[in-house]
């Protein structure tokens, strides 16, 4: 009888303890978790849309979203500093769009060693610490660009590619997708690539130089927002609106104007808002310890031409409501 009583007391105490712990954890509202979104830059419309999406998810999932990036899209050093700073300031997840596939890896690994979870958007980094990659399927986006480039009636095609930093992973994947797709077309006579610094001026002067050296080029492709603008301006400067078929990337309002006026003939538009939103949503799942359904999430890309740009669905993609 004594022992039974003791067991009864034990059970009671245990129950009490369990309830107290459960009650405390149940009533406890956790402090706001922090997520750092570090992008290649902060001033392009693409990154602004990413930020808008990230903030939307941040308020939905009650997270502190810190949005930072270097001024230029080549400055991987500043990006590394930002990664370290975010890790030190207690960010639980870093959402990164890596400028340099290899040179950002060390900082990412350091942060991961401090227990920070890494999610990559848009452009990848060479690290095993990355838990989830969210972005455009770059290879497929390149193929979409090729599909738009080949949608013309010319019998002979000379293709010029204005790509950005060779060390950036997504640009290379897009070019590869593009090249693989146009290889299959017999009309393609030549493919010339130049690499420029990702800014309007560099892209513009590079494009003008390329077109002067290779006047035979009649199809021009470029793979991000800044180089798209540079190429557009170059085409406008050289007044090649009608003779050159230009396929560009992303939905800067100026590029859209060029699509209307003819400097640009097709745009491969990514979904930066969805990228930002999904990255922070994934971060929230990681913080709560939930499983993430896939380690790679493709947000998709839309091919926009002059004909469909004012379709209601395309409007939503092209013109984010600010």
């Amino acid at each position: 009888m004594r022992r039974k009583q003791r067991i009864l007391y034990g059970i009671c105490l245990l129950l009490l303890l369990v309830f107290v712990v459960a009650g405390c954890s149940g009533m406890h509202t956790p402090a706001k978790h922090s997520v750092a979104v570090i992008t290649k830059s902060t001033n392009s419309d693409f990154w602004k849309a990413v930020q808008a999406g990230a903030n939307a998810a941040g308020s939905e999932y009650n997270l502190d979203v810190i949005f930072e990036g270097p001024d230029t899209e080549e400055d991987y050093k500043t990006q590394n500093d930002l990664i370290r700073k975010a890790a030190l300031s207690g960010a639980e997840v870093i959402v990164l769009s890596a400028i340099d596939f290899n040179k950002n890896a060390a900082a990412v690994n350091e942060a991961a060693a401090m227990g920070v979870k890494i999610v990559v958007i848009d452009s990848n980094v060479n690290s095993d610490a990355v838990l989830c990659r969210i972005g455009t399927d770059d290879y497929e986006a390149g193929q979409k660009a090729a599909q738009a480039a080949l949608a013309c009636t010319e019998s002979k095609l000379h293709v010029g590619i204005v790509n950005f930093d060779k060390n950036t992973e997504n640009g290379q994947s897009r070019e590869k997708g593009f090249r693989d797709a146009i290889k299959k077309d017999a009309r393609v006579e030549s493919v010339t690539t130049i690499n420029v610094v990702s800014s309007i001026e560099n892209a513009q002067s590079g494009t003008i130089k390329l077109l002067q050296e290779h006047p035979e080029i009649n199809v021009l492709v470029t793979f991000n927002e800044w180089t798209s603008l540079g190429v557009g301006w170059a085409v406008r400067t050289l007044k090649l609106n009608d003779t050159l078929r230009v396929v560009a990337f992303d939905s800067n309002p100026v590029t859209l104007g060029m699509l209307e006026t003819g400097e640009v003939d097709a745009l491969v538009v990514q979904k930066p808002y969805a990228m930002g939103y999904l990255s922070v949503e994934t971060a929230s799942r990681l913080i709560l310890g939930h499983n993430i359904p896939e380690d790679t999430i493709y947000t998709g890309a839309t091919l926009v031409t002059r004909e469909n740009m004012y379709d209601p669905e395309i409007q939503q993609v092209l013109f984010p409501l600010q």
């Binding site: 007391y9 009671c12 129950l15 009490l16 369990v18 309830f19 459960a22 009650g23 149940g26 009533m27």
Partner: peptide, 24 residues
């Protein structure tokens, strides 16, 4: 409701333990 249940369970646990102790 869940947090209410937590609080109630906590209270009841205390009440039951008290009852056991008092009864004994």
């Amino acid at each position: 409701v869940r947090s209410l249940i937590f609080v109630l369970l906590l209270l009841f646990a205390i009440v039951i333990v008290t009852a056991v102790v008092c009864g004994t």
